[in-house]
Design a protein around this nucleic acid. Structure first.
Lengths: 200, 200
DNA sequence: CCCCAATATGACCACCCAGTCACATGATGC
DNA sequence: GCATCATGTGACTGGGTGGTCATATTGGGG
């Protein structure tokens, strides 16, 4: 957590620091990101940074929180409107996609965080992963009880698949208009590869 | 490509160098891996390394090739035996899993390579991805013609999904003790989330 | 045995890093 | 104007990096 001095800063200065940090952590994973570059980018002294944050990790986790906070504002909309399972799912990805479009740097920060291998981040990663898994699985279980989702699938495996696809999907098409491909991908997950006799 | 002096080395010395490099590149992505640690680990002088390889990248790509060469020995078995589409797919991931079990370090090397963000590796990565895409789509088209795969799905989208999931799945192989999980994941892709009337 | 090319060496270079600390500057209350 | 405390500073430390190069060692052919 940042020190109180950080929050006493003028909003402009605070934003300048955040922005410089976001840019660096979007370009590089935690280990390769350079504090020296951040401070020189926002024009403050190296020592000042240590008045605001305990260390590099403290700053990093603060920025990661910022990114996820903003992302949550988007994806929560998907769960707000009450519709069927597959529509909610599609809306979830659409919102992730909008987030990536509107805040590409924050999106890169979350991506770098998610596939980070740094030892110091392991516990944080595990925490985030299990939270997401829990939320998704609750949502999935409802749909299974409602009879729209195949009950024979392992919910953990379903989460794994959706998460993997979501990550790459937003990564790959973050800057293009590709609504059609988007839906085709969700169709793959929805219908499965195996031919469906009942649809023919 | 290594210089000729490298191949003139005694097999023991060559293996010692390879082993030390493999360990370092398994632990760290390219950018963070340390040449100094590699040379001290295998007990040769720093300068000697530059008698064998042009630079760090040259050594790295050689090691990555080693890893993928070994991996190919495994996954090619999946395409050797003539069976149905879904069995081949399962066998492919089973072989990947076995590779990860038997050569965890090489497995980590391929993982680190695959989600590397280093600029110098971008072209190498793109090459690998397009090769995979071509192979997969040929394989998929056969299965569509054979009537086992839903012809309404966009083959490009199918590859996208399998690529994304396969990547993350293989990533997990190192730490998951459970060899069953990958089958459950393949089932998600095979059957799709939507309930299948014909199976109930 | 000696010569010479191939190979091995490690001190060294320039550069980068996170983090520190003695000191400078600012502001606040008196 | 003064004293006090919070904030800002950047040179510095100790440690790391990839890569170089003058020099030393080796080993085979004449």
């Amino acid at each position: 957590m940042p020190k109180s001095t950080f929050f006493n800063l003028s909003p402009e200065k605070r934003c300048a620091i955040e922005q410089a940090a976001i840019e660096e952590f979007a370009r590089n994973p935690y280990e390769q990101a350079s504090l020296s570059k951040i401070v020189s980018a926002c024009g403050i002294a190296k020592g000042s940074m240590y008045q605001y944050f305990d260390d590099k990790l403290d700053l990093y986790l603060y920025i990661v929180d910022l990114a996820y906070g903003k992302k949550r504002q988007f994806v929560n909309k998907a769960f707000a409107l009450e519709t069927d399972f597959f529509s909610t799912l599609e809306e979830y990805y659409r919102q992730s996609y909008l987030f990536a479009q509107e805040y590409p740097l924050l999106h890169q920060v979350t991506n770098n965080f998610w596939d980070s291998r740094a030892d110091v981040l392991h516990s944080e990663l595990a925490k985030g992963r299990s939270t997401r898994a829990r939320d998704f699985q609750r949502f999935l279980t409802e749909a299974v009880h409602g009879g729209v989702v195949n009950p024979n699938l392992n919910p953990e495996a379903v989460f794994f698949v959706y998460h993997a696809v979501g990550k790459d999907l937003i990564d790959q098409f973050g800057c293009e208009e590709n609504g059609k491909f988007f839906k085709e991908i969700l169709d793959v997950l929805r219908y499965g590869l195996m031919i469906r006799e009942e649809l023919d």
